[in-house]
Structures are given as structure tokens and as C-alpha cells.
Design a protein around this nucleic acid. Structure first.
Lengths: 208, 208
DNA sequence: GCCTCGATCGTCCTTTCGGACGATGCCGCG
DNA sequence: CGCGGCATCGTCCGAAAGGACGATCGAGGC
């Protein structure tokens, strides 16, 4: 019997997962969590075989799904974590894998893919949705760009429509510095204007 | 007994909804649909009391949830349509209401809100999630901006990072014209830069 | 200890943007 | 028929953005 913990902020999705797994004789949902913190607590208390973890936890997110994954994987004798989410942006996938997830599934996956992934995870194998697997390969081919946290901070303000001088004021640096950051961002993203940078960053999942 | 049709592309969500409504003695799910076209077909065939309709139907969307809503409401003796979606952008809400939806719910709503909304809809009342209701009021206060199709076309290219002259070339007009369109867009959106315009348009659901 | 990288600041110069005018033609609505 | 909205084009000008240098300082890795 594979013991499962489900972590998702949508009651509907939780009900759906429980219903699905209820049809499988070898799977048992032992707890459900609506927040990342609850998820960590459940994992610690129930000591399940697999945790199904959403990445997006509503706006009141104290902790993220990635952070919860990291903390669960840091427990002693940690359960395997399967990430189950709507989006498949590069940043999300990489982040989740780095945090120790052993699989990454999309919510629109057919149910049999889901149950198969759970069984694979419980057996210690990694399970990636086909879409995700091919995306990961793409990522390997075209090595990923990573912006520094400061650069992301600048880009977020630019994306909100701020001018260089406004960004400078908000970050308590000179306008020159902002322009310098932007120049680096442009070269990393291979673009040549602020608007194109915002667009590229969104496409790559650096910005939401 | 209230007869329901569920339309959502996520098998998990469908399972969750079926499980939830299975707990209610007066609600019965008579059919489920994974695409908008199926939803219309189900509504016609089963003649239910209420249709629960998602708005986002995966990338292979031949028809949209809004379009399906419109077509269902155009049937003779049409069922009430409750929109159930993840996002609450202004454009989506307005679009759904115009298409004839009698309610608009978010997927992270608590289950009791959901069942209450279904019963309200079946009784011919409109049910809006509190979040949505207040957002609609905001919309009334600040009358909504509408960009012309040409303006949207320009803004899309700008959002992709094109410069004024590049946009001009792509649309076979002069750069002056592009600047003129942008000036109108700025005034409608109450911003003063292209990047801010893109950001505002995204927030208002004009751009995706 | 050196080297790289990120963050910070500077100057000079060119290009691009955006604001402020004005003008024309078309179309739909009352 | 006039009026307003839309799309189109134009000029002039100041402000913002971006490119091309160079430079310092601290943290972290080999």
C-alpha cells in the first residue's frame, strides 16, 4: 500500500485527486494540506511514501511549493515529492527539481499518467510528464540564462512600467547602475530593449 | 434533483467536482465534457439544469469557454451556465457575463460556496463569488477602456519587444502612425510609456 | 593570492521615444 | 448632414533610453 499526502490549495483539486486515488487499491491518501506549511507538517507527521505537491499556493502564500518541497526533502527518511502544477515554465521545473522533487506532472495529465507517476515515485524512480521531459531536453541544449536577484528586481520594476530614474529611486541606487543592470540583462536575454527584455523574461518564466 | 453538466479540460478537476457533488443528495452530475464543443453537445443532449463551465481549455482550444457559453445560452430552454475558472481578469468576467453566464466562481473557492452557487443558479438567481462581485463593482466605477483592434495589434507587437519603426514595417504604415496609435493607447490606459502600457494591458486582460 | 562575477558609479554620444501641435479621408450614428 | 472615432501621415523638439567605453569594491572559488 502506497501512502500519499496531497498538498494543493484548491479544495476541488484535492477532492479530485482523492477520488482518483480512491479507485486504485494500492494507493491510500492519508492526509491533505491546503498550504505549504501544512504540507510539511503532514509529511513529518504521517511519514507517507509520496507527497503530491502543487507549486502555486494562492496569493496568501507564506511559503512556496518549492520551499515546502525543499523542507520535506530535508526531513529524515523523507518521502518522495511529486510536483503537480498547471504551468510548465522552465524556471518552475528547474526550481522544483533542484529542491528535490522526483517528478513533475501537469494538472491536465490523464489520470493513468498520474497514478503511474505515483507508483514510479514510490519505487524511487523519477517520473516526468512527456511534455516536461522534452522541455528539459530543450533546456539542456540551449543552456539557460540566469539573472541575478538584483537584476530580477530591476526587471520587475521595469516590467511594471517604471522609468530608469524611478527604478533608481526605488532601489536607492543611481540611474547609471540601473542602466548597467539593464545592459547585463539585455545581453543575457539576447535582446536590446527594456520591453523586449520583459517579454523574453516572461516567456522564459523569469517573470510572471 | 438538480441535474448538472461539468465542462473542464482537467480530468482531475472533473473528478473533484463529481466527488463534491456526489456528497449532495439534491445534485446529480449527468455528464462531463473535456472540450467546449463537447460541452455544447452535452448541454443539448442532456438538457441539464446547470452547466459548470471552465473558461480555459488547454492550448488545443478550437472553441473557447466563452463561446461555448454563448452557444449553450442560445439553445432553446437553455440551462443556466456557471463559469468556474482560475483567473479573475476583468476581460474574462465581462466576457462571460455578456455571453450569458449567470455566475462566476473561482476554482479556489470553498466547496460550500460552490454548491450554494449551483443551487442559486438552478433557481434562476445569479451567483458571484465575493471576490468577483467586488471586482465587478470596481469595473463599474472605473468604466472600462476599450482599445481598437488596430491599437491592440500595435500593442501586441510592442509587447513582443519591437521598436516603433519595426512595428511600422510589419504593419506597412509609417512610424508616425505607430506613434500616433501609441499616444492614443497611452491616454486610454492612463500611462506614459510603452512598457507601462504593456503592463497595464496585461493586468486588464487586454493582452495575455 | 588571483580571478571572476555582481553591484555600484561615472562620462560621452547616438538613437529612440513621447508630447504637442496639425491635417486628411472614411465610416457610422443620430 | 454634421459630428466623433479611427486610421493614416507630417514636423519639431525635449526627454529617456541604450551603447561604449572605464573604474572600484567585496564575496567566493581554484
Amino acid at each position: 500500500m502506497i501512502r500519499l499526502v496531497i498538498a494543493d490549495d484548491h479544495p476541488i483539486v484535492r477532492a479530485g485527486l482523492i477520488a482518483l486515488f480512491g479507485l486504485e487499491p494500492d494507493l491510500e491518501v492519508v492526509a491533505e494540506a491546503g498550504t505549504p506549511d501544512e504540507a510539511v507538517a503532514c509529511a513529518e507527521r504521517e511519514n507517507p511514501d509520496v507527497v503530491l505537491m502543487d507549486l502555486q499556493f494562492g496569493s496568501h502564500a507564506d511559503t512556496t511549493g518549492v520551499e515546502a518541497t525543499r523542507r520535506i526533502r530535508a526531513l529524515e527518511a523523507p518521502p518522495y515529492v511529486l510536483v503537480l502544477t498547471n504551468y510548465d515554465t522552465d524556471a518552475d521545473i528547474l526550481g522544483a527539481v533542484e529542491a528535490g522533487a522526483s517528478g513533475y506532472l501537469l494538472k491536465d495529465a490523464p489520470p493513468h499518467e498520474l497514478t503511474a507517476a505515483v507508483r514510479a515515485a514510490a519505487a524511487g524512480e523519477s517520473a516526468l510528464a512527456p511534455v516536461i521531459a522534452s522541455r528539459l531536453l530543450d533546456r539542456m541544449r540551449a543552456p539557460r540564462v540566469s539573472l541575478s536577484s538584483r537584476e530580477i528586481e530591476v526587471l520587475e520594476l521595469v516590467a511594471a512600467g517604471r522609468s530608469n530614474s524611478e527604478v533608481a529611486d526605488e532601489l536607492f541606487v543611481s540611474e547609471t547602475t540601473v542602466k548597467s543592470h539593464l545592459a547585463h540583462i539585455f545581453s543575457k536575454l539576447d535582446v536590446s530593449s527594456r520591453t523586449a527584455a520583459v517579454s523574453a523574461a516572461r516567456q522564459k518564466g523569469i517573470l510572471r
